[in-house]
Design a binder for these strands. Structure first.
Lengths: 337, 337
DNA sequence: TTGAAAGCGCTACCAG
DNA sequence: CTGGTAGCGCTTTCAA
């Protein structure tokens, strides 16, 4: 009598023998059911499920030179904005029979390079990167890897392969323009020290300069930060010391903005009358707080689904019509600014 | 001259030939460097890195019957609390040369079963599950899979294999006792409809009953919910209609509590004087909001690191001293209750 | 529509 | 410490 854990050691050969067919046929049953005779198909399927057979995907990957694994490299999963992207990725991939291998860099370049190397060693079918990697060596390595790659969350000029995102610089500029258009004239900026926040800051400052108003006050928070909310509160406190006091502040993410909001509330400062606060990302919480948060919406989840879709198209069709997708962004005007 | 993408097709054989050793030795250089002669080691390493050779981990997995992949199954990555667990998992695993395969169930049992089947097919070295799976078939399947498994976020009686978490029921009871101890007597509960929230509710109600005060008012939010914060606001509005009005409410997660807080603020209700609000999880935001949120701290990240550590011990040593780890919880008293 | 057989690239055992 | 080599379980021609 077979022991209850025999299913773990079952192989195609066992199914083939039981069904009186070759292992090639069993393989086809799982991979191209369309080409096997209906009767054979039914019989093999029945036996496989009765014996609780699960094909060994590792062996399949090796033989087929195709892993059905996509790897994603993100700074940290703990940031809601990246979790949403992962959610989008994961949902599309799972739905199409692929799996997601996840790695965090903690904003460290050496970590990133190491992760990429491991994923390449795993022979993943595709790679999703957060942001544009500046590291020349990594870029070269990636290009010669000859696998579909999509860079996300930024929209630069020379992608390694594919690209889906938006221009952080333009988004920063749009935020400034929005605030200026609402009549604010002494603008502050609070942001992380990562590259994407830097781009937003750059766009923001350019727009401020272009409008001919005084240059903006800036506070940058080191990445990674234990708590963005707390950091936002502290940053706003710092900004409030400046003279003349800013009348509006743009935060490079919603959590920081939330911290700013809380700090204003704590100090009895009316938002937006005494200080306007604007966020970035449009997390679900942005519309739920009071005052609700004016923010820049960027479709974090869409970035993930789009990246997955492009990757799969390239993997399965061998090429892709459009390698660069600009998802854009939009200003969501609410109460805080 | 080799084309720049030749590295992708390089195999151990190429390195072996170049170094004048056997492929067995090359394999040892990567897996057990200690047993090869220092000179050989150096030479092989130099050649491998010069040629930009990356071992094919898939082939290694098949031959070695060991994938160095751990899979995690969570309801949704979008919930900060699970991202923290994933963060803990990922950090430990990466540090020890393992990779993380991630799958979301969206709180659906069929999805969960399908994911588990795929992961098993991938021959992962270990599996991390969120919560206790009630599905008998899945449990049986998992037991016969003979791989290390750790169930998390709950502390039940008959784990499939290993267990790390805390008792949601006791945590719920502790929350009730805390509120009762502070003098509140008309308690409300707002929670998700998942199993873990259910356990917290159960503990909460038992404690209320044990204290001999009126049974608590309950609002349950369907899972998954688009925005917990929003749902919290709506739920509190609903609770506020009850007569007599509750004087304290326990929310089964911090985001819901945050929504409650915001709604109170919106209605000009003083927290905690007119209504005490208590959360669950101790997200970073809990201590940053005003009033700061009294909550139950559960070490979501620790659950992840602990799960990874146990899995690796079992994988590498073949057995583990302690299969059940109760991480406990603690009440963090702040301003809101 | 099916079968036979040649690998996929590596690990691990055994000999030396 | 090193080499030879038999698989790991599957996919994929090629022929039948």
């Amino acid at each position: 009598m077979p022991s209850p854990d025999d299913d773990a050691k079952l192989k195609m050969e066992d199914i083939a023998r039981e069904a009186g067919v070759s292992i090639a046929t069993v393989s086809r049953v799982f991979n191209r059911p369309g080409v096997v005779h209906p009767d054979t198909l039914a019989r093999v399927k029945e036996i496989a499920s009765r014996l609780r057979y699960t094909p060994n995907l590792t062996a399949g990957s090796l033989a087929g030179n195709r892993s059905r694994i996509i790897a994603a490299v993100i700074p940290t999963i703990t940031n809601s904005i990246f979790s949403e992207t992962i959610d989008g990725l994961s949902t599309v991939l799972t739905g199409r029979g692929y799996q997601l291998l996840l790695g965090q860099t903690s904003y460290r370049d050496d970590q990133q390079a190491a992760l990429i190397e491991t994923f390449l060693g795993r022979r993943v079918d595709g790679l999703v990167l957060t942001g544009i990697t500046r590291d020349r060596k990594v870029r070269t390595r990636l290009k010669s890897a000859r696998i579909p790659i999509v860079e996300t969350w930024e929209f630069g000029a020379n992608p390694i392969d594919m690209l889906v995102g938006f221009s952080n610089e333009k988004a920063g500029a749009a935020a400034a323009d929005y605030l200026i258009g609402r009549g604010y004239a002494r603008l502050g900026f609070i942001g992380g020290s990562d590259q994407r926040s830097g781009a937003r800051l750059e766009g923001f400052c350019h727009a401020v300069a272009a409008a001919g108003i005084a240059p903006c006050r800036i506070v940058r928070i080191p990445s990674p930060s234990p708590s963005s909310v707390m950091a936002g509160s502290q940053a706003i406190a710092q900004l409030l010391h400046e003279r003349p006091k800013p009348d509006a502040v743009f935060c490079s993410n919603d959590m920081i903005a939330l911290g700013a909001l809380v700090e204003c509330q704590r100090r009895g400062l009316n938002v937006p009358r005494q200080l306007a606060v604007m966020g970035f990302s449009d997390l679900p919480i942005a519309k739920a707080v009071a005052p609700s948060l004016t923010t820049v919406q960027v479709g974090a989840m869409d970035i993930g689904s789009q990246a997955a879709t492009m990757l799969l198209e390239k993997i399965e069709k061998g090429h892709i019509a459009c390698k660069r997708v600009d998802l854009g962004f939009s200003i969501v005007a609410r109460e805080s600014a």
